[in-house]
């Protein structure tokens, strides 16, 4: 990324920024809107990201509510149970997402999971549309849970959805974190803990002691709020481990 273009809502994307590859159709991601014939408008304030290979354009922004998208891994909270679905909330005060009672590993009509109101699950979004209910599942197409399912014990921490996305970016070939968040890696060298990151801005952490869970959670939330860079994160992790 040579220069970063920042757009305000209503601004046109300059045509010089369009992806260079000519083949294939242009894909628009979050925060952008196509106005025929050839204008692309920003619908929110954010920095413009371009993927030349995939011929994709999207805006990266920090604030606002999480918008479900197919394939996203999320942490949902069961609100109530219906006849064959669990009604889950992804974000507070928004319509519920549906989680099929049979969409769990090894679930059948007789052995369906017994989730109560207030339980949390890790799942993947299978349907996200403007007009229909969002749908979730806790099972792979191959029928395996693959880490999804109910999250027992542990603690849920709330971060911005941009930070959650950065946490989920993974590492590149040389082992550097793509999202520039190294807290979990640094902590993982010293402490054993389980973690699940939901794209809807929730991070679930479970470890053997309350103190460690709180420590990791606080580091993540403050790193998000105060926009720590990698160096600051490393320093903070070191300090937290010393104090513990």
């Amino acid at each position: 990324m040579a220069t970063m273009t920042t757009l305000l809502p209503g601004e046109d994307v300059p045509s010089s920024q369009f992806p260079k590859s000519k083949k294939g159709t242009l894909t628009l991601g979050p925060g952008l809107r196509h106005v025929p014939p050839s204008t692309i408008l920003a619908t929110t304030a954010g920095s413009l990201q371009v993927d030349h290979k995939k011929s994709a354009l999207w805006l990266e922004f920090e604030n606002g509510r999480y918008q479900p998208a197919v394939g996203d891994l999320v942490i949902a909270q069961v609100h109530h149970t219906g006849s064959d679905h669990f009604f889950c909330s992804l974000t507070p005060h928004t319509p519920h997402a549906l989680l099929g009672q049979l969409a769990f590993e090894g679930a059948s009509k007789k052995t369906r999971p017994n989730l109560k109101s207030g339980d949390i699950v890790y799942g993947r979004i299978t349907k996200a549309s403007k007009w229909e209910d969002t749908e979730l599942e806790c099972i792979n197409p191959s029928g395996k849970a693959d880490g999804m399912g109910q999250l027992k014990e542990g603690m849920l921490f709330h971060v911005s959805h941009a930070f959650a996305r950065r946490l989920m970016m993974g590492t590149d070939k040389s082992g550097h974190s793509k999202g520039a968040v190294v807290i979990l890696e640094e902590m993982g060298e010293k402490i054993r803990f389980e973690v699940a990151v939901g794209r809807n801005g929730k991070v679930w952490i479970n470890s053997s002691s309350v103190k460690e869970t709180v420590m990791i959670g606080r580091l993540l939330t403050t790193a998000d709020e105060e926009h720590w860079d990698v160096e600051q994160q490393k320093k903070a992790v070191k300090k937290a481990l010393q104090d513990a």
């Binding site: 339980d119 949390i120 849920l156 309350v210």
Partner: peptide, 20 residues
Amino acid sequence: STNEQAFLLSALRENIRLDG
């Protein structure tokens, strides 16, 4: 969620608050 409630209470029993 129930996880948050249970965790908060178990932390308080150890005199720990979530924001330190």
